[in-house]
Structures are given as structure tokens and as C-alpha cells.
């Protein structure tokens, strides 16, 4: 480490020129990159909050006073509270099987886990309509027994689980594969049981990767629009999640209220990004001592 720093300091003219761009190129590229990001990211993000506050703070908060907005917030939280833990358990189980054991068809399994990312959100909703809707395979039976899945909360939860399915697993699999099985073998040799090994050895090793997967999974679960839109039926106060409520308000030209609800979702996105950066920073801190 010290030698590398020294060589960087003593680097002379021509070599330095080889790896460093001239000042005008640097500034041009920085301007182009920031301009591009501003055009597509920063300005639209700022617009959400500006539009939400168009009628001042009072107008902003009055948007949340109607019961439909509150019902939408409750349903969104409920959906995430079911979908995230289920995908968390699956992610840990799948990563344990894939990283700790060898078996044929492993890479196919990894590909299948990623499948929902390749499916359009609208199709993710459609598959459940075709399964549980009145025209679907199980629809008539469900109708007879008076069980409602499509245009009801269970359908929304199912569609959300589908679109957020890979998040935790895909963070954990590469992480646990890189960590190998050495520490777990050592624990077993010293007399720990399987559960003890998992709770005391594996879980502390993967906690940041796990947290990372969970916050991304949660952001998508709360924000999913296309898939949920197909299965929800848009019944106000009952099957409206926050993103769907945003759409309804927007289509009624109730822009301030639409952007007010949208601003909550934008805040959620910002908190997600902050936590994500924090986890990346922590993971880097813990990785450095390992290398020496």
C-alpha cells in the first residue's frame, strides 16, 4: 500500500500524462456527463417536489388528509410487509443451497431466479390474471368458493412478490459464493449445530448484503406500478396502492395531490439511495482489512 502511494507521488511528467486527461477534456466530459444526468435525473426529481409544493405547505399536507390517500399508504405498506419477508426467506435459502453445495443445473437455477427481471411488469400482472381471474385456469373454482384474488389484495401481493422475487437472492448468491464454506466447516468441526453455524457465522458475514437486497426489494415492492395496475382493479380505498393513487389523481388533473403522494414515494427512493450508499461504504470498510 505504502509503495503504491509512493510511486503515485513520484510519477513523473510523461507517465502522468499517459493516465491523466488534459484539463479541457476533463471539464468537457464532466460537463457533458452532469448535463446528461441533470436532463434525465436531477431536474425531474426536483420537479416532483416543486409541483407538490405549488400551493404551499398547507396545500401539500391537505393532500394527505383524505381517507383514500391514507388507505393507499396503508395498502402499500402492508404489501411490502408481506412480499419482502417472503422473498427474504427465499433469498437466504436459495443462496445457501447454491453457494454451499454443488449440484447439477445450478447455473440454470440462477438464471431462472433472474427471470422476473426480464418480464415486463404488465406481463407479471397478466400471468396472475390468467391463473386466478374469472377467465383463468382456477377462476371458476375460486368464484364458486367465493375467494377473490384478482381485483383484491391477494393479487396485488402476489404480483408484487413476482416482480421483487430476485432482489435478495441475487445480492446474496455471489456474496456467499465468494465467502466459501471454510468458516462454516470450522464451526461444525468445533461442535456447533447447523442452526448455530447459520446464526453465528453465516448471518453476520452476509448481513450487509442481506440488508442491501432488502432495501432494494422494499423500494420496488412499494413502488411497483405496471404489474399491480393489471391485478388491482383500481377500487378506491380498497385496492389502490400509492403508485396507483398517483395515477388516478393525475388523470383527474388533481396535480398537486398527485405530486404530493408522488413526493412521498420520491422520498422513499432517496432514503433507499442513502441507505444503499451507506451499505456500500460499510462493506468497503470491512473488506479492506480482509485483504491484508
Amino acid at each position: 500500500m505504502a509503495a503504491a502511494t509512493l510511486s503515485r507521488l513520484t510519477r513523473t511528467g510523461p507517465i502522468r500524462r499517459a493516465t491523466h486527461d488534459p484539463r479541457w477534456i476533463r471539464w468537457t466530459l464532466i460537463t457533458v456527463a452532469l448535463g446528461f444526468l441533470a436532463l434525465f435525473l436531477f431536474v425531474p426529481l426536483a420537479a416532483v417536489f416543486t409541483e407538490a409544493l405549488r400551493h404551499g405547505i398547507r396545500g401539500y399536507f391537505s393532500s394527505f388528509e383524505n381517507p383514500e390517500a391514507l388507505a393507499a399508504i396503508r395498502l402499500t405498506v402492508l404489501t411490502a410487509a408481506i412480499a419482502v419477508p417472503l422473498n427474504l426467506v427465499f433469498g437466504v435459502a436459495a443462496a445457501w443451497a447454491i453457494a454451499k453445495f454443488g449440484f447439477p443445473g445450478k447455473s440454470l437455477l440462477i438464471t431462472l431466479i433472474d427471470l422476473p427481471f426480464a418480464v415486463s411488469p404488465v406481463i407479471s400482472g397478466l400471468v396472475f390474471v390468467l391463473l386466478f381471474g374469472l377467465q383463468g385456469w382456477l377462476g371458476p373454482w375460486l368464484h364458486e368458493h367465493d375467494i377473490k384474488i384478482i381485483f383484491a389484495v391477494p393479487g396485488i401481493v402476489l404480483a408484487t412478490i413476482f416482480v421483487t422475487f430476485p432482489f435478495v437472492a441475487r445480492e446474496l448468491i455471489p456474496l456467499m459464493q465468494a465467502q466459501g464454506v471454510g468458516e462454516e466447516y470450522a464451526a461444525l468441526t468445533l461442535g456447533a449445530s447447523g442452526w448455530q453455524t447459520f446464526w453465528r457465522i453465516t448471518l453476520p458475514n452476509i448481513k450487509w448484503g442481506l440488508f442491501y437486497g432488502v432495501i432494494l426489494c422494499n423500494a420496488r415492492a412499494m413502488g411497483e406500478f405496471g404489474a399491480v395496475s393489471v391485478v388491482s382493479g383500481h377500487i378506491r380505498g380498497q385496492t389502490n396502492t400509492m403508485p396507483l393513487h398517483v395515477e388516478i389523481l393525475y388523470n383527474e388533473y388533481n396535480f398537486v395531490a398527485a405530486f404530493a403522494v408522488a413526493s412521498l414515494l420520491a422520498l422513499l427512493a432517496l432514503v433507499t439511495l442513502v441507505l444503499k450508499s451507506y451499505v456500500e461504504w460499510r462493506a468497503n470498510l470491512t473488506r479492506i482489512p480482509d485483504e491484508h
Binding site: 444526468l37 436532463l39 435525473l41 436531477f42 431536474v43 425531474p44 426529481l45 420537479a47 416532483v48 409541483e51 411488469p121 432494494l216 423500494a219 420496488r220 412499494m222 413502488g223 411497483e224 406500478f225 405496471g226 400509492m242 403508485p243 396507483l244 398517483v246 395515477e247 393525475y250 396535480f255 398527485a258 405530486f259 408522488a262 414515494l265 420520491a266 422513499l268 427512493a269 432517496l270 433507499t272 439511495l273 442513502v274 444503499k276 450508499s277
Partner: peptide, 28 residues
């Protein structure tokens, strides 16, 4: 950190935000 915004921001919010910015009366 903000580069990941399209992953974290719900698509409906992105949709109405982009529309607000790029429509006739928007900033751009």
C-alpha cells in the same frame, strides 16, 4: 448515488415527473 434513481424511483412517479418537465409549460 443518484445514478441509481431510476431503479429506486417508482415508475409512475418518474412518468409524471418527466411529463411535468417536458410538457408545454414545463421547465424544459
Amino acid at each position: 448515488a443518484l445514478v441509481d434513481l431510476p431503479f429506486a424511483l417508482p415508475t409512475a412517479v418518474a412518468g409524471i415527473a418527466l411529463t411535468a418537465v417536458y410538457s408545454k409549460n414545463g421547465w424544459f
